Amino acid sequence: MRVSYSDDTCLVIDDFPDRDAFRRLSMSIQFVDYEPIHSTKWNKPYGPPGLPIIQSAGVLRGQKQSTPPRLGLIGDFVDQLRNSRAPISDGPGAGVVGSRILTGKLIAMGAGAGLFWHADTDQVNGAYIFYVHPRWDSSWGGELMVMDGAAELGVGALADSAGGGAERPDYESLGAVIGPDFRTDPAEERRMQIGTGRFYTARPNRLVLINGQVEHRVNPVLPAAGDQFRCSIVGFGIK
Results as ranks from 00 to 15, higher is better:
Ser6Thr: 08
Ser28Asp: 03
Gln123Ser: 10
Tyr200Arg: 05
Arg217Trp: 03
Gly114Cys: 07
Ser99Glu: 08
Ser89Gln: 12
Cys231Glu: 00
Ala225Ile: 05
Val177Met: 13
Gly226Asp: 00
Arg230Val: 10
Val218Cys: 11
Gly164Thr: 14
Arg203Thr: 15
Gly50Met: 10
Val208Glu: 01
Ser39Cys: 12
Gln193Trp: 00
Glu152Phe: 12
Met145Cys: 15
Met145Tyr: 05
Arg217Asp: 09
Leu174Asp: 01
Gln63Met: 05
Gly93Pro: 10
Asp15Pro: 03
Val214Ser: 07
Ala162His: 09
Arg2Phe: 05
Pro186Thr: 00
Gly237Trp: 08
Gly58Met: 12
Ile233Trp: 02
Asp20Asn: 12
Arg23Val: 04
Leu71His: 05
Arg206Leu: 09
Glu143Ile: 01
Gly179Thr: 13
Thr121Tyr: 01
Pro186Gln: 00
Ala86Thr: 09
Ser66Leu: 15
Glu167Asp: 13
Leu209His: 04
Gly114Ala: 07
Asp20Val: 09
Asn205Gln: 12
Asp185Thr: 14
Asp170Lys: 04
Phe236Ala: 07
Ala225Trp: 04
His216Tyr: 15
Tyr171Pro: 02
Pro134Thr: 00
Gly93Lys: 08
Pro204Phe: 06
Asn205Ala: 07
Gly75Ala: 15
Val59Ser: 07
Gln63Asn: 06
Gly91Phe: 04
Ile210Ala: 09
Asp7His: 06
Phe22Ile: 09
